[in-house]
Each structure stands twice: as structure tokens, then as C-alpha cells.
């Protein structure tokens, strides 16, 4: 019994790591642009499809190459999306258009997948063999999910604190006007943040494809859970997502275990509403502190 719970918690943390990475990809774009990309879940699923088409049942060498390739491909797609989304914001007084355009891009991506691939879930083989925890077989991709989360957390940390472009993106999120006065190329930095968010979800989607449902309608589930993870951790706080993501994942897995798999999304929705009602700044967000 106890070990069962333990296994569920470990799987929850692994699934939650995916949510955390999506939440971090929200954060970097939101910090630089104040935009929340509703299409991020479908971009993540595109990564899964890339794994299916480019790297199903292949050797490690090709797999690694394809991982990079699909990350770059999806980064390119998200960058184009970002360019389109930012276009009307340049001149218009109406600053809400991104809400509509990112939702419609989300629908377009899902529809294109549906038309070309049909409404099926594709299964992708894992490059990492399954391993045993407490006597239970655990798919290797769960480990990859956690590794990917930690990799992206530290990679972002390094990028945002040590590199010139990363520092400039941080500066943008800390004081937009001062950043413009300093001559930082705002539009280019915003597009770079979109590209990085695409790189993140593209690679993670690729890595965890063996354990998720790679299907055209799965994107919404991930955009929702990624958002909940971001809100729980405190929007803008990447460190917060390291807790927020796994927390949401564990809640979802426990719900599935105790109540039923169909209630997972409901549980996430309840977590979201509770946090927004009682602690809108998130568990770890501090008012006024926008750490990246």
C-alpha cells in the first residue's frame, strides 16, 4: 500500500516535471512580452509527433540528432507564431489581441494534426529502457522528464544570468521602460524568448513522447496543466515551477489512483481555482519580486 503510494508520487513528480517545463516556457515568454501562449500545449504535442516520425525505433545517434532537429523545428514554428502575435500589438491600442490569436493558433495546430494524422494516439518507442522502482517497472521516459525539467531549469538559469542576451531578456521583464531607454532591441529579444520557449517544449515533447498520448487533442491538457503549474509556483518564478509542476502532477496521479483517471483534469482545475481564489500570487510568488 505504502509502496504503491510511493510509486504514484514518483510518477506524479515525473508527469509534473513535464508541466513544470511547460510552465517555465510560459514564464520566459510572459516575462519578455506579457503574453501567455495558449498554443504552447499543442507545440509540445508537435514535439511528440516529431519523435514519432523522426525517431521511432532508431539508434542513439540518430535519436540525439533528431531531438535537436525537432527542438529547432518547433522553436522556428513558435518564433513565427510569436512574430504574428506581436504584429498587431505594435500599433493598436487594443492590447488583448494576443489572447485571441494564440487561442486560434492553438486550434489551427490541433486541426492540422487532426487532418493529417487522424484522431489517433500514436505510440512511440523509448530510447531509454524501463527500470524498476520498488519492484515496479517504470518507463524510462519518466526519468527523462525529470532530467529535462532540471536541465531546462539550470540552462535557463545560466542563460538568464550569464549571457548577454539572457540578461537582456531578464532586464526586459524587470523594467520594460528602462530596458528600452538602454537601447535593448526589444522586439528581437521577445522573438528570442518565443524561440527558447519553443525549443523547450519541442525537446520535452520529443523526450516524453513514449509516456504521453501523442494525439491531436492532447495539447489542451498540457497547456492547462502547465498553466496551473505556473500559477501554483507563482507566475514568473522558475524555481516555483519546480515545486508547482510536481505538485500538480502528484495531485493528478493521486486523483487518478483514488477517484479515477477521468478526474485528473478536474483535479487540476480545482487546484487552479483554489490557488487563484486564495493565493493569486502563487505559493512561492512574492509581490514585487520577479526572479527569473
Amino acid at each position: 500500500m505504502l509502496s504503491e503510494i510511493l510509486i504514484i508520487v514518483i510518477r506524479g513528480i515525473a508527469i509534473g516535471s513535464i508541466f513544470a517545463t511547460i510552465a517555465m516556457s510560459f514564464n520566459i515568454v510572459h516575462g519578455a512580452t506579457n503574453i501567455f501562449n495558449f498554443a504552447q500545449g499543442n507545440m509540445f504535442i508537435l514535439g511528440g509527433f516529431a519523435a514519432y516520425f523522426l525517431a521511432n525505433q532508431v539508434g542513439l545517434g540518430q535519436w540525439t540528432l533528431m531531438l535537436l532537429l525537432s527542438g529547432l523545428l518547433i522553436a522556428a514554428v513558435v518564433t513565427i507564431q510569436g512574430y504574428i502575435t506581436l504584429l498587431p500589438l505594435r500599433s493598436s491600442v487594443e492590447q488583448d489581441s494576443w489572447l485571441i490569436s494564440t487561442v486560434s493558433v492553438s486550434v489551427i495546430v490541433a486541426a492540422l494534426l487532426m487532418i493529417t494524422q487522424g484522431p489517433f494516439a500514436y505510440s512511440v518507442s523509448s530510447i531509454v529502457p524501463s527500470f524498476r522502482i520498488l519492484g515496479t517497472r517504470t518507463p524510462g521516459a519518466y526519468a527523462l522528464a525529470i532530467v529535462a525539467m532540471l536541465f531546462w531549469y539550470f540552462a535557463l538559469r545560466f542563460f538568464l544570468r550569464k549571457t548577454f542576451i539572457g540578461l537582456a531578456i531578464s532586464a526586459l521583464s524587470q523594467d520594460f521602460d528602462a530596458a528600452r531607454a538602454a537601447g535593448l532591441p526589444v522586439r528581437r529579444l521577445q522573438l528570442i524568448s518565443f524561440a527558447i520557449s519553443g525549443l523547450m517544449v519541442g525537446t520535452v515533447g520529443f523526450l516524453v513522447a513514449p509516456v504521453i498520448s501523442v494525439s491531436p487533442d492532447a495539447g489542451l491538457k498540457y497547456v492547462l496543466n502547465g498553466f496551473v503549474a505556473a500559477v501554483v509556483g507563482g507566475i514568473g518564478s522558475n524555481a516555483g515551477t519546480l515545486i508547482g509542476g510536481p505538485l500538480v502532477g502528484v495531485v493528478a496521479m493521486l486523483t487518478a489512483y483514488k477517484v479515477g483517471g477521468a478526474y485528473q483534469d478536474l483535479a487540476s482545475l480545482l487546484v487552479l481555482v483554489l490557488i487563484l481564489m486564495f493565493r493569486p500570487q502563487g505559493l512561492f510568488g512574492r509581490v514585487g519580486a520577479r526572479r527569473v
Binding site: L167, S170, Q174, D175, A181
Partner: peptide, 13 residues
């Protein structure tokens, strides 16, 4: 180059 009022720097840098 404009230096804004209120000694604005990037606080978390």
C-alpha cells in the same frame, strides 16, 4: 540616451 527619473536600474541584475 535617456536616464529615467527615480534611479531606475534592473533590480535583479
Amino acid at each position: 540616451r535617456l536616464v529615467l527619473d527615480g534611479h531606475r536600474v534592473f533590480p535583479e541584475l
